[in-house]
Design a protein around this nucleic acid. Structure first.
Lengths: 198, 198
DNA sequence: GCGTGCTTACTAACCAGTCAGTCAAGTGGC
DNA sequence: GCCACTTGACTGACTGGTTAGTAAGCACGC
């Protein structure tokens, strides 16, 4: 399949999912967003399930690509992670749309091992990103003593919660972000006023 | 309607929702769980939407009833809150089933103002429960200085996250609970070893 | 002329909701 | 005590609309 076509179908699926929700997500609605026929969709994807599985992969890959940060300074890496988790994916779509789609998928996880496995992999990668930065930061003397795995698990749990609130309560994630950053400052013995050297 | 009937329909809806998920929740499946006909369901509830609205009320009321704690000691109240949030609703159903149903509802919130409003009310009550206990605890000299609203928001956000992880990753909430309790000990300057007098 | 990408038109299954009618448990008149 | 009637709870069969997926055919670049 054409890469351009694939991207257009994924974007259409995303829009249709956010507009109608998982329960009312039909191939017709995805096709409408794509501005092609329903049969054209079945030409590229045999079943709706296959299309949605592909979409999940696409969504998670897009999210994970944001988490990568190559900086050697663990303080920069940690800040970049929080930034990535709360920032919109692209300039044109807001972070809420993304969180809505992801929560829809998460709510389906109990009924699909595939979904569950992929979400578990994402979660582990998120926790490892945080734990790694914390570990390196402690080693380098930037942070005070703390259990990297515990800090990582707590931060990732709080991020999960922040995303739920953003979707279910239509709340801006900025408050949650501030609190998570405050927690990190406390737990790692960072002075919030101290600037990290660029 | 008979109270017994109502309770049976609510329980059937809960089972059907947890078994099939919101997307595949049909009146037929609820009727099957109830072991009555689909038409009988429409006899009691005009529309599927009305039934689900009633179910949401039932689910939230059940949850909120657990949050009430009358103790005068804010430390006891705070512990009871964390207990209530993580404990199974009843002896016969586990906390996961409940969290699954609640997450399904939360994922529908963007498409229903009714759902969103009720979830917002629950969230506010949860935050006020924590903030009140923290405020009283600081005043009574049990806790160190902290912003009660910030602590409450962060704790409730983390609880939201813990519930998502329980559902989406099929993870036991015990780790998350331990971390939340640890955060409270830190933020409120509590000694984890100190026993609260009964 | 042949494959790729697509369309219109279709099908079988399934959906929420309706309807006519059943059945048991009252209720009131006599 | 018994009959006529009402009421509440329910069923099975149905309807109109919607769904995922299919079939047959068309345009068009190579």
């Amino acid at each position: 399949m054409n890469e351009e076509t694939r991207e257009a179908v994924m974007a259409a699926t995303h829009r249709a999912l956010c507009t109608h929700g998982f329960a009312d997500l039909t191939t017709q609605r995805i096709a409408d967003e794509w501005e092609k026929s329903k049969a054209a969709l079945h030409y590229h994807y045999d079943t709706k399930e296959e299309l949605l599985r592909t979409f999940l992969d696409h969504l998670l890959a897009k999210f994970e690509s944001r988490l990568a940060c190559e900086s050697a300074d663990p303080r920069v890496r940690l800040d970049a992670f929080v930034d990535a988790v709360f920032a919109p994916v692209e300039a044109d779509d807001d972070s809420r749309e993304f969180a809505v789609a992801l929560l829809e998928i998460k709510a389906q996880a109990p009924y699909s091992e595939t979904y569950r496995d992929r979400l578990a992999a994402l979660d582990e990668r998120m926790r490892e990103t945080v734990a790694g930065a914390v570990r390196d930061g402690i080693e380098a003397g930037h942070f005070g003593d703390a259990d990297p795995d515990d800090v990582a698990r707590f931060v990732v749990t709080a991020i999960n919660g922040a995303h739920v609130r953003e979707v279910a309560l239509d709340e801006s994630p900025s408050e949650a972000r501030r609190l998570i950053e405050g927690y990190l400052d406390d737990a790692l013995g960072r002075d919030p006023a101290t600037e990290v050297p660029a």
